Simulated scan of single mutants.
Amino acid sequence: MDKKYSFSVIRRLAYAAGLSLPAFSNALAEPFTFYGKLNLSYQYADEGEGNFSDLKSNSSRLGVKGELALQDDLTAFYLLEWQVDLADLSGDDNITSRNQYVGLLGNWGEISLGRQDTALKMAQGKLDQFNDLEGDIKNLWRGENRPGDTMTYRSPKWQDLQFTGTFIAGEKDGPSTYSASIAYGDAGLKSLPWYLVVANDSNVAGYDIQRLGGQYKLDDWVVGAMAQRQKRESDGDSRNGWLLSSAYTLQQLTLKMQYQELEQDWSLSAGVDYPLAKQVKLYAFLTRQDKQELPDKDWLGLGLEFRF
Results as ranks from 00 to 15, higher is better:
21 L>I: 07
21 L>D: 12
22 P>W: 01
23 A>K: 11
23 A>S: 09
23 A>H: 04
24 F>V: 03
25 S>K: 04
25 S>I: 00
26 N>S: 12
26 N>V: 07
27 A>E: 12
27 A>H: 03
28 L>W: 01
29 A>N: 11
29 A>Q: 09
30 E>N: 13
31 P>I: 04
31 P>T: 02
31 P>Q: 05
32 F>Q: 04
33 T>L: 08
33 T>E: 13
35 Y>D: 07
36 G>V: 01
36 G>H: 01
36 G>E: 03
36 G>S: 08
37 K>H: 06
39 N>D: 15
39 N>M: 10
39 N>Q: 12
40 L>E: 12
40 L>G: 05
41 S>L: 05
42 Y>G: 15
42 Y>D: 14
43 Q>E: 15
44 Y>A: 12
44 Y>G: 13
45 A>M: 15
45 A>C: 14
46 D>M: 05
46 D>F: 03
47 E>Q: 14
48 G>P: 12
49 E>P: 11
49 E>F: 12
49 E>Q: 14
50 G>H: 07
50 G>L: 07
51 N>H: 13
53 S>W: 13
54 D>Y: 09
54 D>C: 08
55 L>V: 15
55 L>H: 06
57 S>F: 00
57 S>N: 08
57 S>L: 07
58 N>P: 05
59 S>P: 13
59 S>R: 10
59 S>Q: 13
60 S>W: 01
60 S>N: 05
61 R>F: 11
61 R>V: 11
62 L>M: 11
62 L>G: 07
62 L>N: 08
64 V>C: 07
64 V>R: 00
65 K>E: 15
65 K>A: 13
65 K>N: 14
65 K>D: 12
65 K>I: 11
66 G>S: 05
67 E>L: 08
67 E>R: 10
67 E>C: 09
69 A>C: 08
70 L>D: 07
70 L>A: 08
70 L>H: 03
70 L>W: 04
71 Q>S: 15
71 Q>L: 15
72 D>Q: 15
72 D>G: 10
73 D>E: 14
74 L>I: 11
74 L>P: 05
74 L>N: 04
75 T>F: 06
77 F>R: 00
77 F>W: 00
79 L>S: 06
81 E>A: 02
81 E>R: 01
81 E>K: 01
82 W>N: 07
82 W>V: 14
83 Q>R: 06
85 D>H: 00
85 D>L: 01
88 D>H: 04
89 L>A: 13
89 L>C: 09
89 L>R: 08
89 L>F: 05
90 S>Y: 03
93 D>H: 04
94 N>Y: 02
94 N>G: 10
95 I>L: 01
95 I>Q: 00
95 I>S: 00
95 I>Y: 00
96 T>S: 10
97 S>K: 03
97 S>G: 13
98 R>A: 10
98 R>T: 07
99 N>C: 05
99 N>A: 12
100 Q>T: 15
101 Y>T: 02
101 Y>N: 02
102 V>N: 02
103 G>S: 03
103 G>T: 00
104 L>E: 00
105 L>Y: 03
107 N>A: 08
107 N>R: 11
107 N>C: 08
108 W>L: 14
